[in-house]
């Protein structure tokens, strides 16, 4: 397996084995991924979702490639921009805890889609 899923979503933990589980928030997942990218992991999926509502999610799962010896500066820019953007969007908002069950389900489904997209090219 040439990838890991960084996640704070308990539903993902139940389904996938190749994970780095983060006991924390969406932002903690982003920071964890940032640290990995600085150490030589590349991003496979984009750190952010594609709608504002997905920013309010308490859960996030991001796929990273296993560590290499090279640091990808473009990916550092993507994750740093994503953290800025997340903080910017959440200025006065709190994660939507009321709907956390639905968010966990959505995050798991979007992760599955991302893995399908990725596997069709790389799972050799």
């Amino acid at each position: 397996m040439n990838y890991r899923i960084v996640t704070n979503n308990p539903s993902v933990k139940e389904v996938y084995k190749d994970i780095i589980f983060v006991n924390g928030t969406f932002l903690d997942v982003l920071i964890n991924v940032r640290d990995l990218v600085h150490k030589g992991h590349e991003l496979i999926s984009h750190p952010l979702g594609s709608s504002i509502r997905t920013m309010y999610s308490p859960y996030r799962s991001i796929i990273v490639r296993n560590k290499t010896n090279e640091i990808n500066k473009d990916h550092i820019e993507v994750i740093e921009n994503s953290i800025y953007s997340y903080k910017n969007t959440m200025q006065r908002r709190k994660p939507d805890a009321v709907n956390s069950k639905d968010y966990a389900m959505l995050d798991l489904n979007l992760l599955k889609s991302a893995l399908d997209e990725f596997k069709s090219i790389y799972d050799y």
């Binding site: 984009h46 796929i63 997209e117």
Partner: peptide
């Protein structure tokens, strides 16, 4: 399409 993976993008 706006895809999720960076390679896809």
């Amino acid at each position: 399409p706006e895809l999720t993976t960076l390679e896809g993008k």
